[in-house]
Design a protein around this nucleic acid. Structure first.
Lengths: 340, 340
DNA sequence: TTGTACGCGTTATCAT
DNA sequence: ATGATAACGCGTACAA
């Protein structure tokens, strides 16, 4: 592989001349520049990234360490779409995505420390933030550029993406209320994640505002099995709710199957709303009513924002598509009191 | 951030002494080594990866450039599981995954050239290989370590993973044949990918061996919409097949919904086999019969193999779980001739 | 053990 | 202005 020195030798100039020519900086005459450029191209010159990173102390890479079981990628489409959005921006900007997944907290924090310590990344996407998150303490203390997903963390001004801001107007609850549901349940993701707590809060306060019964909340794990288990326990309640809001599409689909297997009709006996979508949500019978958002757009926005944060340039405007809205399909019907 | 020189100064020794101490090499006395180690730990020393990469010319990173539309990640669970498997190995070995996705051939090849040219990766996972693949020509000419997915490429001895080797014994066809199906169709992924061509070949030759009618092959794109379109066109055939083999689970699920919408019963009027699984396949009604394999295990094996190839060590043994097998569920029934 | 050259690209300094 | 020289960033490895 050709190095700067090789080009310089071939062109009969010094390394600096080649460097200036290649980087479009003044210091070389036009004809010499043209000659060098041509020579570099013909020799297939590519700068050694390690050498450049060493002097510039830039990694040209950003990190995404997902604090979950790796199987989440196929259970839950959020991450797949989010990554797709990130990629579509990064690949155009010459920045690389370093990708890790682990649900071991120790290993996770060690990853961050290593990546930052070795200066292998310029910044991070921080997802699934926990209360009193040790990652935040660390990244803050090293003032590493970060874009956070979910509700903002009080006292930290890191840029935030994907904060739906529903407050006490959660569209799933409002939609169910408009169909006469007064007694609902919510199968949430792990309570260790702040955005799940936030959603519970939104659902609960919306229900309160609409004078519904306080929603039953069952903690689950976003997996199909978790959806089955949570649904089974809800169906066994003495006062069975008339509707369930699921934290993601996969649990909703597994939950619907569970209800059907128990002899219930959806939406006749039980209404269902999923907070999230799958490519399949439309194709199933019944098609799943969902609070959907364009996760790819969220990823694009997050990437633009992180790049701007790293380069300390103007943050991009928040795109409109990255907002969640209810998509009514077939799984919500009029409330019918449990005949149990 | 502390550097080698900082430690050396604090310990009153030279950089080399510190380097030897940290890397467990001879050249420092035991007590001095202990002192240096302690000092390094207390100062939170982490080697600068760029500096190390520069001298060792190792990147400690491997690349995965997926030549597809980014949405494939959520359509098709293969990649999600495969990446999960890769990650579980890499994160334990201190190697990092550089991840890109693009369906633009030009950009794709440019990515490989840049990643190799800048020496940012030590090797690649090569997926969705095409006939006369320009990536292979390039990687071969630069003798970059590679692990390939799918059928081996004649004349190239790169290690291969995920070659099912069904030959003329494709389990989906054999399963359908055992239910009396003699006229089947196959909705394949893009014909530009070698493994899809291979599968068509397997299905066709298995059908021939079992004296079935030559399978109708419809090219599609692994997307739900593609599954709908392909199914619609198959159902419109004058001589409608009694069974369809889909290239992935998502197309199968979309296809089943399409058939049901057209008033057909699955498996009463139409049997379905998917070549691939989703976490949901089990939960749907009817549950989808599939040729399944443990894609996470495939990812683990691929990562082990790539690391061994890079380090020129003994390749790991092929794990048994990474083999595909038929999982019979609800979507295959006895062939019933079309009454159309 | 220590001193030092090396790997490679960038940039400040100096001479023209 | 243009070109050349040298120092720098940081860890490794060989000679002294």
């Amino acid at each position: 592989m050709a190095t700067l020195a090789d080009i310089a030798r071939a062109a009969g100039v010094t390394k600096s001349a080649v460097s200036y020519a290649l980087n479009g900086q003044p210091g070389v005459s036009a004809e010499r520049r043209a000659h060098i450029l041509e020579l570099a191209a013909s020799m297939g010159y590519q700068p050694n990234h390690a050498a450049r990173a060493l002097v510039k102390s830039r990694a040209d890479a950003v990190g995404l360490v997902i604090p979950r079981d790796p199987r989440i990628l196929s259970y839950d489409t959020f991450y797949a779409d989010f990554i797709a959005g990130i990629e579509s921006v990064l690949s155009a900007k010459g920045t690389i995505l370093l990708f890790e997944m682990t649900d071991d907290r120790r290993a996770e924090l060690a990853s961050y420390k290593q990546l930052v310590g070795e200066r292998r990344v310029d910044g991070f996407f921080l997802t699934d933030i926990r209360p009193d998150d040790e990652r935040i303490r660390f990244l803050r203390s090293t003032s590493t550029p970060v874009v956070m997903l979910g509700p903002p963390v009080p006292g930290w001004d890191a840029p935030v993406v994907n904060d739906d801001g529903f407050g006490d107007r959660h569209p799933a609850v409002e939609h169910l209320a408009s169909y006469g549901h007064r007694h609902i349940a919510h199968v949430s993701g792990p309570l260790s994640m702040l955005h799940n707590l936030k959603r519970i809060d939104q659902i609960t306060s919306t229900a309160r505002r609409l004078e519904m019964a306080p929603p039953q909340v069952i903690e689950s794990d976003f997996s199909p099995d978790g959806g089955v288990r949570a649904t089974t326990s809800i169906l066994a309640l003495s006062k069975r709710p008339t509707a369930i809001i699921y934290g993601n599409a996969v649990m909703a689909i597994a939950g619907i199957a569970t209800a059907q297997r128990a002899g219930l009709d959806v939406p006749g006996d039980l209404s269902v709303v999923a907070c999230d979508e799958t490519a399949l949500t439309t194709y199933l019978k019944p098609a799943v009513t969902a609070v959907a958002q364009d996760d790819v757009a969220v990823g694009r926005y997050a990437a633009d924002l992180l790049l701007a944060t790293i380069q300390q340039t103007e943050p991009p405007p928040r795109p409109a598509q990255a907002a969640a809205r209810l998509v009514a399909r077939d799984t919500v019907g009029p409330a019918r009191p449990s005949t149990r």
